[in-house]
Design a protein around this nucleic acid. Structure first.
Lengths: 254, 254
DNA sequence: AATGAGCGTTGCACATCCTGCAACGACCAC
DNA sequence: GTGGTCGTTGCAGGATGTGCAACGCTCATT
């Protein structure tokens, strides 16, 4: 692995915490100022860092551009999107699409009733991975050792009394999810929000993404939300079929 | 500037266009495969690229994490947010906050009626920079030479008949915006959407950000939208005062 | 005004680290 | 079974990154 690049990339998370000047970057990187300067300049030329008026560096706009383009090129997302909006038009609630990647669960699409906005607001954050329905679905499909490893490393914040309390409970929940082929989050993240989710599978049967429907208690009870499960699973299955090439490729209706 | 880092970073926009395998990366980078491999590995270790099952590389989730943290650490955004939501509660329409950075205009916050969602969906994209009210505000404040340079380099896509047609018209519009201290987009991007915006200034009087209110024609006419201008300007001014330290610092009400 | 400290910047000599080569192994198609 | 493609590895040569020291700038201090 390349030392120079390694150092340069280490600057990014450092700046993510907040702006820093040359001296701080050099110190936290453990290199000479002149070295840090050259690295920062290179990052700057690529638009990944930006220099503000006070000469301090912070992350640049190109980063958003990259993240944006990246998410738009995810083929699962592209395939799934019309199905998600179609489902949304029928049932009206918020729909999420998420993927698992190297220890993290990331929302890659969202459809909100009447507002078809893609929102990435939670992206990258440690998003309730211990309670979210999509997270359960994605983790439930991991190979045994990785699943245990991930579960052991996680924190289990008690968002609500119904949040997953610890690794043991989580693994047990994952086993259930794995067996039944769908997942819920009943007030585990926010007291009044319930979710039902289903997995999207690739040609080899592995879970490549997960989708969920969320609704507040005041609109539909948890029981009512569960009656939507068949529709959610049907949608997920339809996406799975198209994604794995086993289905009518150019049709996104119900 | 560092050659190694330069090459490594050049991989990112390359992968933004879509997944690529080692050979493609090496070729498009003009380096040997083994070199490309080492660079990709380093990027991978930092989570910036991800390797999918077919061994091809694509951009990784850490990129979102960085973009997310970056946007959350922008102090303008942090200061402005409560003002934006307060205004939104009064008038109900969609509110945007944007900044200018090295030739690009980027949305850094958005408040939608009843849905206080931060949406970054347009981030990084060449977002209607020739017609958006916030873009006009930000560009209008650039120093003369840079303004001309940017205007000359832009494309002027005819989104609608009312879109800015060319650089001359754009510069003229910017002059107007600069003089009057506010800007509009009346159907210049989408036929049925109008916007009014106002600038947010730092202590030195320079425009550091811009905000706008958007509403579809069917809800409010352009004339009605313009009656909101005083409120928009007041909000922008209030943010400016707090941002530049000339105001009650811990108050975000109307 | 003068002085000094702090910070970013530059040019350079050294040697570290990156590069490209060639060979190996895995996988797939024919 | 065989040929081809692609990712991977170890290595030697040298290009490239590194740290040093000195300079200039701005700002705070006396």
């Amino acid at each position: 692995m390349s030392q120079t690049v390694d150092r340069a990339l280490s600057i990014l998370p450092l700046l993510a915490q907040g702006p820093a000047d040359l001296g701080q970057v050099a110190e936290r990187l453990g290199v000479h100022k002149s070295t840090a300067l050259r690295l920062l300049r290179t990052l700057h030329e690529h638009g990944l860092v930006h220099r503000q008026q006070d000469q301090r560096y912070r992350l640049g706009a190109r980063l958003f551009a990259l993240a944006q383009e990246a998410v738009e090129n995810l083929d699962v997302r592209e395939i799934a999107h019309p199905y998600l909006t179609a489902l949304n038009e029928r049932i009206g609630h918020t729909i999420h699409l998420a993927v698992y990647e190297e220890g993290e669960v990331v929302y890659i699409d969202k459809v909100e009733s009447r507002y078809p906005v893609r929102m990435y607001s939670r992206i990258g954050k440690p998003v309730a991975i211990t309670v979210a329905a999509v997270a359960k679905l994605l983790l439930a499909d991991l190979p045994e050792p990785e699943r245990r490893a991930v579960a052991a490393k996680l924190d289990y914040p008690p968002y609500t009394p119904r949040s997953t309390p610890n690794a043991a409970a989580f693994l047990k929940e994952l086993a259930t999810v794995r067996e039944q082929g769908w997942a819920t989050d009943l007030g585990g993240h926010e007291e009044s929000i319930n979710c039902v989710g289903a997995p999207i599978r690739g040609a080899d049967g592995r879970v490549v993404a997960a989708m969920s429907v969320s609704a507040p208690n005041v609109v539909v009870t948890a029981e009512e939300l569960l009656t939507l499960l068949p529709q959610v699973r049907d949608t997920a299955d339809a996406i799975s079929r198209e994604y794995s090439g086993t289905a009518p490729t150019k049709e996104a209706s119900a």
